Simulated scan of single mutants.
Amino acid sequence: METIAETGSTNADLIARLTAGEPLLEGHWLVADRQRAGRGRQGRQWIDAPGNFMGSTAIRLHPGEPPAPSLSFVAALAVYEAILAHLAQPVGLMLKWPNDVLLSGSKFVGILLEREGDWAVLGIGVNLAAAPALPDRETRSLAQSGPAPDRDGFAIGLADCLSRELDRWRQFGLAPLLARWLAAAHPLGSALSVHDGRGIRVHGRFAGLELDGALRLRLDDGRVHVIHAGDVVVEGS
């Protein structure tokens, strides 16, 4: 575990190291006390706060493994398991497609997966101590549900959880992973609103996942619409 006081983006730092040919070992984490240019999905800014977790790690990709984009589900499950250890009651902790982790319906985790050659660089931000206000969504911190976890202790636990999830992903494949993800996600039949990759907002009911992890949305007329990328809102949450 490598800790630095301040940087622009831990993901960008690791990508720069890989591009420069610096040898990295899988399992090495770069964790920042402050991050000036943290990023989320679709180019959104991830706003940091003292005491929160902001870190990245690199995952070596090998032939024969499940598709690299499915690492988003691996990351979400790892974060989910790491957070469970710090909640007196897990009620309200839920996964949201494709890789969000919600607490009482509010966003408090950011996950960004980027590809660099034969490596996937995974960035994770978790609101442990404070929840910066966002203009477009409700936010929350773990400190609102109990004592804020120590950042370094949380980092060690998260690294262990990710290592276990990666082992399962490589050994058992994608199907068991998606089954475990579904068990922790919004229930089948949940009303969802999806802003898909074409800029179209679609409303329907959650109908599970495709074999590759794509979202199945049942429309009012009974048709199933398959979505490979988009922003999801769990309606009524």
Rank of each mutant, 00 (worst) to 15 (best):
Asn52Gly: 07
Phe53Asn: 02
Thr57Ser: 14
Thr57Cys: 15
Ala58His: 10
Ala58Arg: 12
Ile59Ala: 10
Ile59Gly: 06
Ile59Met: 02
Leu61Val: 13
His62Ser: 13
Gly64Pro: 14
Gly64Lys: 12
Gly64Ile: 13
Pro67Glu: 12
Pro67Leu: 04
Pro67Tyr: 06
Ala68Met: 15
Pro69Trp: 12
Pro69Arg: 11
Leu71Val: 03
Leu71Ile: 04
Ser72Asn: 15
Ser72Gly: 15
Phe73Ser: 02
Val74Ile: 10
Val74Leu: 05
Ala75Asn: 11
Leu77Phe: 07
Val79Phe: 03
Tyr80Ile: 01
Ala82Pro: 04
Ala82Asn: 04
Ala82Leu: 03
Ala82Arg: 04
Ile83Tyr: 02
Ala85Met: 07
Ala85Gly: 11
Ala85Asn: 08
Ala88Tyr: 00
Ala88Glu: 13
Gln89Met: 04
Pro90Tyr: 06
Gly92Val: 03
Leu93Ser: 09
Met94Ala: 05
Lys96Tyr: 04
Lys96Asn: 12
Pro98Tyr: 01
Pro98Gln: 13
Asn99Val: 04
Asn99Leu: 05
Asp100Glu: 08
Asp100Lys: 07
Asp100Pro: 09
Leu103Glu: 04
Ser104Thr: 00
Ser106Tyr: 00
Ser106Glu: 06
Val109Ile: 01
Gly110Thr: 02
Leu112Glu: 06
Leu113Cys: 08
Leu113Glu: 08
Arg115Pro: 00
Glu116Lys: 12
Gly117Thr: 10
Asp118Gln: 15
Asp118Asn: 15
Asp118Trp: 05
Val121Arg: 05
Leu122Val: 12
Leu122Asn: 13
Leu122Phe: 10
Gly123Met: 09
Ile124Asn: 13
Ile124Asp: 10
Gly125Thr: 05
Gly125Ile: 02
Val126Met: 08
Asn127Gly: 08
Asn127Thr: 04
Asn127Lys: 08
Asn127His: 08
Ala130Ile: 01
Ala131Arg: 00
Pro132Ile: 13
Pro132Ala: 14
Leu134Val: 06
Leu134Gly: 10
